[in-house]
Simulated assay, not measured.
Amino acid sequence: MTIDRRKILLAAPALLAACSGSKMLSYNGPQVTSIMAFKERRKLYLMHGNTALKSYPFQLGFAPVGHKRFEGDGKTPEGTYIIDRRNPQSAYHLSVGISYPNARDRAFAAAHGRSPGGEIFIHGTPEEVVGKKDWTAGCIAVMNHEVEEIYTMVGDYTPVFVKA
Score class of each variant (00 low, 15 high):
Arg85Ile: 04
Asp84Trp: 06
Ile120Trp: 08
Arg69Met: 00
Ser55Lys: 06
Glu149His: 12
Gly124Lys: 06
Leu25His: 04
Met47Val: 02
Thr2Trp: 04
Arg41Asn: 14
Phe62Gly: 01
Val160Lys: 01
Ala141Val: 09
Ser115Asn: 15
Ser90Asp: 14
Leu53Pro: 08
Tyr92Thr: 03
Ser115Gly: 04
Ala110Pro: 10
Lys39His: 09
Pro116Cys: 03
Gly138Cys: 10
Ala137Gln: 13
Gly138Leu: 05
Asp84Leu: 04
Tyr157Trp: 09
Pro126Gly: 12
Glu71Asn: 12
Asp134Ala: 04
Asp4Asn: 15
Phe121Lys: 12
Met24Pro: 00
Pro126Tyr: 05
Tyr45Ile: 00
Asn28Met: 02
Tyr56Ser: 08
Leu53Glu: 02
Thr33Lys: 01
Met153Tyr: 08
Ala37Gly: 15
Glu40Asp: 15
Gly113Trp: 03
Met36Glu: 14
Pro116His: 05
Lys163Trp: 01
Phe38Thr: 05
Ile98Arg: 04
Ile140Trp: 05
Ile120Ser: 07
Ile98Tyr: 08
Arg6Ile: 05
Pro116Asp: 04
Gly29Ala: 09
Val147Ile: 15
Met36Arg: 02
Leu60Phe: 10
Pro57Phe: 12
Val130Ile: 12
Leu46Glu: 00
Ile83Ser: 11
Leu10Trp: 08
Val154Ala: 09
Ile83Glu: 03
Val32Ala: 03
His112Ala: 09
His112Lys: 15
Gln31Pro: 10
Ile98Asp: 03
Pro126Ile: 03
Glu127Ile: 05
Tyr56Arg: 03
Val130Arg: 15
Thr152Ile: 08
Gly124Val: 02
Thr136Ile: 05
Tyr56Asp: 07
Asp134Met: 00
Gln89Trp: 08
Leu46His: 04
Arg69Gly: 01
Pro30Asp: 01
Pro101His: 03
Gly113Phe: 05
Pro13Phe: 13
Met143Ile: 07
Tyr100Ala: 04
Gly155Gln: 12
Ser99Gly: 12
Val160Pro: 02
Leu60Gly: 02
Asn50Ile: 05
Pro64Cys: 09
Tyr151Val: 14
Glu149Ile: 10
Gly66Ser: 08
Leu9Trp: 13
His67Ala: 03
Arg104Ser: 13
Gly131Gln: 07
Val160Gly: 08
Thr33His: 14
Gly97Met: 11
Asp84Arg: 11
Glu40Cys: 01
Leu25Asn: 11
Glu128Trp: 02
Lys68His: 05
Ile150Gln: 10
Thr2Ala: 07
Arg104Met: 07
